[in-house]
């Protein structure tokens, strides 16, 4: 395009430059507004409600959506200005432009990924806290915080990878962390998982129901309650909580008399 314009007269060059500038500014504004509408339409406003990113934005008298919409508009403005300067021949910007065109998208993406990570982390913490509100155990808020920082860590990792920083070590760290987490959870919960799996079968097929007299292992009694994890049987004022996987493993004898 630059070659094409090289032959036209200097006046035409100025005209082109002005057109590009006007068009760029106009386009940037319209796209910024459209972006804003789109973000509102997608319900981003509700999604970011109450997150720390939104609060920070509010402290500066703006909000997350405006920041996002403005930044897209500003990137377009910047390109329009640089390009029109180039066309007008004021500055030799081709080097700047080509490098900028290479790098800018990945930087923009990195920033977006990072912001998205912050938002998602906040969201995760908020929803987990909401879920655990009924649990009267103060340390439980740690769960939400750990999840939040995990999400942010992953986002930072992707953002850094996007702009080409060497992050292999961090990825290995993430892998080790996830591996440890999975192993620990599986070890800690395998009893519950086994009981839950067996409980699902018992609840769905109901081989015995409340009021039946059953013997499981060396315990015998009337079934009082069946839930996902345990079956409660009662005999002579004693309630036995039998984990459901034991019900399947040892087998239950229905006693009819």
């Amino acid at each position: 395009m630059v070659d094409l314009l090289a032959n036209v007269s200097i006046e035409m060059q100025y005209l082109w430059a002005a057109l590009i500038l006007v068009f760029g500014l106009f386009g940037g504004y319209v796209i910024g507004q459209l972006n804003r509408q789109l973000l509102f339409g997608l319900g981003v406003e509700e999604a970011v409600e109450g997150t720390s990113l939104e609060r920070t934005a509010r402290n500066f008298g703006t909000d997350t959506i405006t920041v996002l919409a403005r930044s897209t508009a500003w990137i377009i403005y910047l390109f329009a200005i640089v390009y029109s300067l180039q066309v007008a021949g004021f500055v030799q910007t081709s080097v700047l432009l080509s490098r900028g065109a290479d790098l800018l998208p990945s930087y923009v993406l990195a920033v977006l990924v990072f912001m998205g990570g912050l938002l998602a982390g906040d969201k995760v913490e908020m929803s987990v806290d909401e879920r655990l509100k009924g649990v009267k155990f103060p340390e439980v808020s740690l769960v939400g915080r750990i999840l939040r920082y995990t999400v942010i860590f992953v986002a930072v990792l992707f953002a850094l990878a996007q702009i080409g920083v060497a992050v292999e070590v961090l990825f290995i760290l993430l892998g080790a962390y996830l591996f440890a987490f999975i192993v620990l959870t599986a070890t800690a919960l395998h009893q519950l998982l086994a009981a839950g799996g067996a409980g699902l079968y018992i609840l769905l097929s109901e081989p015995f129901s409340i009021g039946d007299r059953v013997a499981i292992g060396n315990r015998e009694g009337v079934v009082q309650e069946v839930d996902l994890f345990v079956t409660t049987i009662e005999q002579d004022g004693r309630s036995y909580l039998v984990p459901n996987h034991l019900v399947l493993r040892k087998g239950a004898t229905l006693i009819r008399d």
Partner: peptide
């Protein structure tokens, strides 16, 4: 409450609509 014992001290009048429901 105490549904196990209540069930043992009662009998069905008709089929139980809550069977296998949760």
């Amino acid at each position: 409450g105490d549904a196990g014992n209540v069930m043992n001290k009662s009998r069905p009048l008709s089929y139980n609509p809550f069977e296998k429901s949760h």
